[in-house]
Computed example of a mutant assay.
Amino acid sequence: MTVCAILSAKGSQVVSVAPDVKLSAALKILSEKQIGSVLVVSGTRIDGILSERDVVHALDKRGAVALDEPVSLAMTRKVVSCRLSDTVAHLMEVMTAEKFRHLPVVEEGKLVGMVSIGDVVKLRVQEYEAEQEALREYINTA
């Protein structure tokens, strides 16, 4: 299975904010949408990604004053992305090695979606369930 299959099932909507948005406003978006990260974009360029972990680090380092600062001060600047053709196994390797839970999907320089570790786990569970059902069918018809 590939990233394309994940996006086909969940859609390609990506939540993003501008770099100058206050951290408190970004937190409100995370809470309202019940998501773990937002992309930080300027026009069509990905400037960074803001995750729950980034927020915790910002609050730990600068205290409550961080909430009035722009997300650009708290975001992760080095954004690792994936492609539509990447396999779920590859995503699992990258997410585990880099300790990321969210990866933007970029194809030909354009943002086309976002995948999370939850999306990956959901797909893997569906694959295992399908395999189990196929085995049951095989055993019942043998």
Rank of each mutant, 00 (worst) to 15 (best):
V106E: 00
V71Y: 03
V71L: 07
R62S: 10
A74L: 02
E108N: 15
M95D: 04
A64I: 15
V71C: 05
A89N: 13
V105C: 04
K99P: 07
R62I: 05
A89W: 04
T96A: 13
G109V: 08
L73G: 09
A64D: 13
K99Y: 14
E107T: 07
L84M: 13
E108H: 15
M92N: 14
E69P: 03
L84N: 09
D86N: 12
S85N: 12
A89I: 10
T96S: 13
L73Y: 09
D68F: 07
E69V: 02
A66W: 05
V106H: 01
A89T: 12
L67G: 07
H90N: 10
K99T: 15
M95H: 06
F100P: 00
V80Y: 02
L73K: 12
A74E: 05
A97P: 00
H102T: 04
E107R: 02
R83K: 14
V79T: 03
H90G: 08
K61I: 11
D60Q: 10
A74C: 08
S72P: 02
E98C: 14
V65N: 10
A89H: 07
E69S: 11
V71M: 07
S85C: 10
H90F: 14
C82T: 15
R101W: 04
R83L: 09
A89D: 15
E107F: 00
V80G: 01
D60W: 10
L67S: 06
D60Y: 09
K110R: 14
A64M: 14
R83Y: 06
L103Q: 00
A97M: 10
S85E: 15
G109W: 08
K99L: 14
K110Q: 13
M75K: 04
V79F: 04
P70W: 10
M92F: 14
L84R: 13
M75E: 06
V106D: 00
L67T: 08
L103H: 00
H90D: 13
M95S: 08
H90W: 12
S81C: 06
L103K: 01
K78D: 11
D86A: 12
V65R: 13
L103C: 03
V79D: 04
L103M: 04
F100T: 03
K110A: 12
H102P: 06
V79L: 05
V80W: 02
R62E: 10
